[in-house]
Design a protein around this nucleic acid. Sequence first.
DNA 1: TTTGATAAAAATTTCGAAATTATCTATATT
DNA 2: AATATAGATAATTTCGAAATTTTTATCAAA
Lengths: 221, 221
Amino acid sequence: MTRGKSTYEHLRDRLISGEFYPGQRMKYEDLRADYGISISSVRETLFRLSAVGLVDFLEQRGFRVPHETEALRHDLAQSRILLETEGACLSIRYGGVGWEARLNAAHHELKHIESRVSSASGNSQDLVPLWSAAELKFHRTLIEECRSEVLKQLHLQVYYRFRQQLISHDKNFGFITTNVEQHQGILEAALLHDEALTRERIHQHLSRHLIQLPPQTDSNE
Amino acid sequence: MTRGKSTYEHLRDRLISGEFYPGQRMKYEDLRADYGISISSVRETLFRLSAVGLVDFLEQRGFRVPHETEALRHDLAQSRILLETEGACLSIRYGGVGWEARLNAAHHELKHIESRVSSASGNSQDLVPLWSAAELKFHRTLIEECRSEVLKQLHLQVYYRFRQQLISHDKNFGFITTNVEQHQGILEAALLHDEALTRERIHQHLSRHLIQLPPQTDSNE
DNA sequence: TTTGATAAAAATTTCGAAATTATCTATATT
DNA sequence: AATATAGATAATTTCGAAATTTTTATCAAA
């Protein structure tokens, strides 16, 4: 693996685990020191990350961690609902028993980690990366058989940005334990091949982050 | 504007206008000569373009123009239908008369250029950039009032990739003149505030590129 | 003729610094 | 005290080349 790729992946994981605060400047010099690479390579990595929205690029003013806003969280939740409900329904349609088995396995793993987090009161900090990987795995498996690489790519982007927003919003990871029944519900609906119910359950899972947008008027009227 | 940004935009427009053939290598040295910039800057620009899927990046093997395949065209069409129908319906819900006016204007412009292309038999080559910009403008205006920046970003990405695939597939730009009634139909449905009809018309507009996927079996069963 | 090893060429990755631009600080002015 | 200006500092942008890897070309052996 090239230095560029491993740097990209490592920094991506730091960004979605809330290591940096919203609005923080990503200084070239700091990252150069962190990874022992040159300024050009740092810049290159940041451009890759800005492409998926994990950092913002401002001309002549470098890169920053996106601000945490209610509106963006709503927007990302809404977009994830659109992509994930569609992907899940297509998976239900096209996926076979192999898919069902993998989804079951992914859920089992996730459930196990979620219960460990629940019992480990307080010091569940170091379980977060494990949970993070398991949750991503479950939701990716859910749409795995949709037969659309583009849809899966878009979903991954939105998932990462949403995760980053959530962690910026709640540094205590309170959102981990509140999803246990919801994941269960999604699994059940999918295994029943009930597309409408699956849509509903995914919607429920994310609806907590939706807000009532102010009735903004069209400025050109 | 920085050199980096203008290079990005220029190269992007070359990529979606079919100047390069599918699978072509994007050699650093060639682009360095084209734009009078350094290798590092070329690489940076290509990373930005790969982020939106306009070039493919292969580790240790540089960047290439994506191959033209029926499956990808289908995938992109399907994804565009999902994003554009959703965005259009939300625009219908939230957009006011100002939006309707802008949509009308964008369509009028597009119609005008399409008629010029139709009459100019043969040498309509130089009208393509104009048409390209007008078509993008129309479809972007259609979803403009959806109140989701994320949805608009995703749509733009998919739109660019779809355009690139179409031009790779049909170098003679035959697809330009076949869409006149369809654009008209979308406009009418949107102005009627008929969400279901708008969805249907957008679907029709892109359905030509959908294929019957082979009934692929789940490999793990 | 085909296969495989080796050398030469070309391309990619990474670097470190120069040039440019933004940001900060101290000072002067209203 | 608040605002504006100028110089100093820090950060970003861009460059050109060295180091590494892949690709191509050459030639010997099966």
